[in-house]
Design a binder for these strands. Structure first.
Lengths: 159, 159
DNA sequence: CTGACTGCAAAATATTTGCACAAAT
DNA sequence: ATTTGTGCAAATATTTTGCAGTCAG
């Protein structure tokens, strides 16, 4: 937990038990949890913690550079304890996000965006696709629509 | 709007005016709007449209392959009318997402993920950084904390 | 006509805010 | 002691759902 201590000291922020436990809950997870998932895990150790605090502390951790709010397709914001360059496999079906190591993709030359007035700090590649669990049952496209009158003879008006 | 007609015909879906207008509202926008932003734009032409319909139709458009629900850091889901391979500049400050053309980055060899049981369909690169508007005022890290008693003498109880 | 779609209202989910008390330095 | 943090409750924002009437084919 030294990283948190250092960061708090540097930023002149109190080192609270909540910050410690919430960061602890995030670190080591590779599933990019939502604030609520973190809340559940944190409450195992700190039952009194409030949802509000989890939201606030996660933001703080991001500000401190100890976590990243990742880009994800789903509803809730999701957090990543890894701040080093890495990539993601994103299941377009269940919206799971997995870390993906590809060292060869870590050295792409950062495009020159000076003309676009955008300072690039880092990048990550999102590989969209279907995860193991979803690739079998490719439900997609209108499950309901599948039932299309099972070969009935009712179609005729009257004969 | 032929693409929508074709897609609806293929999938045996009614071609409603809402679907037409909502897709129309999305096409041509490059700012990756949320459902609510689309709603506001759609209501200029179709004042009676409901928020529910916008959510549902956007999902339908995604299923039809006429739009993409993009990965973004913010709260609401955001949509992209572009379905071809392209990349994004994501402002970590204001969470704006801009399209970024980089043809040389469109031909990265898709990593072999067979061993990982994940079928990659496509990819896009997220360049994280600061947009023109945000790079000037790098507020970040605790705006409040900035006010640290500006050398006052008020420290005493009653002067 | 018929089945799917839309709009409404309400539920469910996700996130933020104001305030009083508690805790860290 | 001072300042920020936390928890609570309520406000907001976002998304989904059930149902009745409407519309496209």
């Amino acid at each position: 937990m030294t990283a948190l201590e250092v960061a708090c000291r540097n930023s002149d922020l109190p080192l609270t038990v909540q910050r410690r436990v919430i960061l602890q809950a995030l670190v080591g997870r590779e599933d990019h949890p939502t604030a609520d998932q973190i809340l559940r895990q944190v409450r195992k150790r700190l039952p009194e913690v409030s949802r509000t605090t989890v939201y606030r502390v996660l933001d703080t951790l991001v500000e401190l550079g100890l976590a990243v709010k990742i880009c994800s397709p789903g509803k809730g914001a999701r957090f990543d304890p890894r701040t080093d360059r890495h990539h993601h496999l994103v299941c377009v079906q269940c919206e799971k996000v997995m870390d993906f190591e590809a060292p060869r993709l870590n050295l792409l030359p950062l495009p020159d965006t000076r003309t676009r007035a955008f300072d690039i700090l880092d990048y990550s590649i999102h590989f969209r696709g279907l995860c193991a669990g979803c690739k079998g049952r490719r439900v997609r496209v209108r499950e309901k629509r599948v039932r299309r009158l099972p070969a009935k003879t009712t179609k005729r008006k009257a004969g």
